[in-house]
C-alpha cells in the first residue's frame, strides 16, 4: 500500500489556496495560455432553440459602463430612469412580452436586466417603437452610447449594440462550452476532441475573453409560460 502524502504533497495540494500562487497564475500562467490558445469573445444573450420553453422567459443582462464615473454620473443615470416611469409602464403594457425589467447601478455601470418572451431583436425593436426616447436618455449616459442615438434612426445598429453588451450565458450543461467555442472559431464541434480535464482551462480563457458571464440561462419558478399566458390565466387581460 502506498505511503500517505508527504509534506511536499500537502504543500502542492494547498497551492491553489496560496495568495502568491494565485498571483503568479494571474500574471503568468493565464496570460500565457490566453496568448497561445485564445478564445473568441462569445455572443451574449439567450441562444436560439427549437424547444418552445427556451424561447420564453429569456434573460437579457445588459451591462453599460457610465460615461461619468462619479456619484454625479451615477445620479444622472438614476434620474433618467426615475423621469421615465410612464414611458416604461407604457412600454410594458404594450410590448406585451416582458416579465420583469430592472435597472441597477454597480460600480459605475448601469445594468438593465430583463426577462422577456420570444425573439430578441424584435423585443428590442418593439421597445424602440414604444419608448425609443427612454433608450436615448439611457444611452446619453453611457460609454459609446452616442453612436446609436437616436435609436429610432439606428434600429439595427442599436440591436447589435445591445447584443454586443448582453452577457454571454454559460450553457446549462457546462461542457457544452466546448461546442460554442468551436463554433465561434469556425471549427466542426469536437475537432480536435476536447479532454474533460481541459474544461477548467476552457472556462478560464472564456472568462478572460468575456469577463462577465451569466451563469446559466437563469432558473425559473414557473418555467415555460409567457407573460400573456400568465396574465390571461389570472384574468388580468393581455
Amino acid at each position: 500500500m502506498a505511503k500517505g502524502p508527504g509534506w511536499f504533497d500537502r504543500f502542492v495540494n494547498d497551492l491553489p489556496e496560496r495568495r502568491w500562487f494565485q498571483f503568479l497564475s494571474n500574471i503568468v500562467v493565464v496570460p500565457f495560455w490566453a496568448a497561445i490558445d485564445p478564445r473568441p469573445k462569445l455572443p451574449g444573450g439567450a441562444r436560439p432553440a427549437v424547444q418552445p420553453s427556451e424561447s420564453l422567459q429569456r434573460m437579457m443582462n445588459l451591462i453599460m459602463p457610465l460615461k461619468n464615473k462619479s456619484p454625479v454620473g451615477r445620479a444622472m443615470a438614476a434620474m433618467v430612469i426615475s423621469q421615465n416611469i410612464d414611458e416604461i409602464f407604457t412600454g410594458l403594457d404594450n410590448v406585451g412580452t416582458i416579465h420583469f425589467a430592472r435597472f441597477i447601478i454597480i460600480d459605475d455601470k448601469l445594468c438593465m436586466l430583463s426577462v422577456y418572451d420570444g425573439d430578441f431583436s424584435n423585443y428590442i425593436r418593439d421597445f424602440i417603437v414604444a419608448i425609443g426616447n427612454v433608450f436615448d436618455g439611457i444611452l446619453s449616459q453611457v460609454e459609446d452610447g452616442d453612436d446609436v442615438i437616436p435609436t429610432r434612426d439606428n434600429v439595427e445598429k442599436f440591436i447589435d449594440w445591445v447584443h454586443d453588451r448582453d452577457l454571454f450565458q454559460l450553457p446549462d450543461f457546462a461542457t457544452d462550452i466546448f461546442a460554442l467555442q468551436d463554433a465561434a472559431m469556425n471549427r466542426p464541434a469536437g475537432s480536435p476532441p476536447h479532454s474533460l480535464d481541459e474544461l477548467p482551462r476552457a472556462m478560464i480563457l472564456q472568462l478572460k475573453a468575456n469577463p462577465n458571464f451569466s451563469l446559466g440561462g437563469g432558473y425559473r419558478g414557473y418555467a415555460g409560460f409567457s407573460v400573456a399566458q400568465i396574465r390571461q390565466k389570472f384574468g388580468l387581460g393581455w
Binding site: N122, S226, Q229, R231
Partner: peptide, 28 residues
C-alpha cells in the same frame, strides 16, 4: 425590407412558438 423584423419575426415568434396569442403559445 428587413429579414429580422418580418420573416424571422413571423417564423420564430408566431409561426412557431405561437407567441402572438396565449391560447397557442408553445404550439407550432
Amino acid at each position: 425590407a428587413n429579414l429580422g423584423a418580418q420573416f424571422e419575426a413571423v417564423m420564430c415568434d408566431w409561426l412557431n412558438l405561437g407567441l402572438l396569442h396565449p391560447d397557442i403559445t408553445g404550439l407550432n
